[in-house]
Amino acid sequence: MATNNSIDGGVEKFIHHQILSDELYPYLKSLFCILSLMFSVPAVCFNAINILIFCTIGVTDSITVCFLYLAVFDFCTMVCLSVGAFFTLFSLGVPGSHNLGTYTFVTAVAHSTFSDMALATTTYIALQRGLCVAWPFLTRHAFTRNRTLAVLIAITVILLGSGLPRAVTFRFKYIPDPNNNGSQIAVVHFFESFSTSVSFYLIFVKLFMGFTQYVVMSVCAVVIYIGMRSSIRLKSASSSAGSNSYNARSYHGRAERCVKPIGQKNTENDVTDIKTETKKDTGKKPSRKELLVIKQALTVVLLQVICTTPAIIIYIFNMIEPRFRMNTEYHNLYVVIYGAADWSYTVNAFFNFFIYLNFNSKFKTCFNSLFACGKHMGLEKMTVTSRD
């Protein structure tokens, strides 16, 4: 079925879409735009809250720096994606707004750049936590706040420099609408350097760096999980051994202090000693704060890995199948699948807020303090400076 897909210089180009029909294409495109907006708009608000809370807590350690950077990049990504989804829906449903669909190309370029930065930041979090779990004594002082800040700034500069040639290789060109002489159609006009810039961006940033970061995150997630489970078992075994040894040594002494002559009651000091030793008998459990930090990083990394998987598959298929691109044989399928990948990005940015709220006690305390949630939910009032 031949369809009028694009206009270049006033000349109509007819392209065959063999997989996804033109009748079904706008419905699927609208569906993924709506799904993206359902997550991206709340994600904008949630990441704004994330930025506010992390700034309020204070950037005192490397992991907080990483989460603050991730919140900033997710916020920018969700803003660009929300604007692009709104433009796309308006161009499909509102008469006379067909040019809005073309303008989404700008938001798509910005969204792609910011999502690359978010992916790189999550990769650094995975690498940092993975090394700290695997070699805690060697890497304990390696990831300081200033070093982490320097690394993240360097990542930002590199990705901006890699994407800049691609961002300046096009402009909007307005041509007469063949169906309406009184209006014009905006088309994306690419310069001669477009092919080289896009090829470099797709191969180096999207495919090579993206796939490398994906592998690093996956490996580090496994290392973090194994290390966390091993740490829990080791500390539990040590605590149990220490508790049994202490019980054997102290049982006889406690019994002697507890048994008093007839008519003589236990003094207050005796009762205090008994309570203290009873607490010691339970053994020291693994640090809850330490486990929560590891679980928080692990959950963030796993969510990023899951939500990045569709995009990685798309990039690989895009490189090996030249027909799976814009204004080619599989144009409709290309746009719809990329819409699905964008939706997976919104899911990732949406749930990070709840991960912080569940695993980060400082984040939860600050959130309750700023929004007075503790008072309305019947929680105990806490301050931002409280400790676990």
Rank of each mutant, 00 (worst) to 15 (best):
M1H: 09
P286W: 00
I232A: 08
A48R: 01
S236C: 09
Y69S: 08
V133R: 00
L127D: 04
R387L: 05
S197V: 03
F354Q: 07
T60I: 06
T309F: 10
A372E: 13
L152Q: 02
G182I: 07
K265D: 15
L291V: 09
N47Y: 03
S230D: 15
F353K: 00
H98V: 14
T88C: 07
V347I: 11
N4E: 07
S243A: 11
K362A: 13
D342C: 15
D8G: 13
M228F: 11
K284I: 09
T282L: 14
L370M: 05
E321W: 10
H17N: 13
V384L: 02
G10L: 10
Q18Y: 15
S369M: 14
P286E: 06
H111I: 11
L298K: 05
S62L: 06
A43I: 02
E23P: 00
W135L: 15
K362N: 14
V219F: 02
S183M: 07
V83I: 12
T139I: 12
N179C: 12
L28C: 07
A372Q: 13
G84Q: 01
T272I: 10
D22N: 04
N327D: 15
D342H: 12
V59Y: 05
V65Q: 02
I57W: 05
L202S: 12
K295D: 10
F14G: 14
G161L: 04
F67E: 03
L370F: 06
I175R: 08
F317E: 13
D342R: 06
N50E: 07
V109D: 15
V301S: 03
I49M: 07
E12N: 14
A71N: 02
C132L: 05
F39M: 14
R140Y: 15
F367R: 09
I7T: 07
Y356N: 05
T3Q: 12
A167C: 14
M326H: 14
V65H: 01
N318L: 10
F363P: 00
V59M: 06
C307H: 03
N352F: 06
T383D: 01
T56M: 05
A297T: 06
Y338E: 02
D61V: 01
D388M: 11
N348T: 06
T104G: 08
L292R: 08
T272R: 06
N181Q: 15
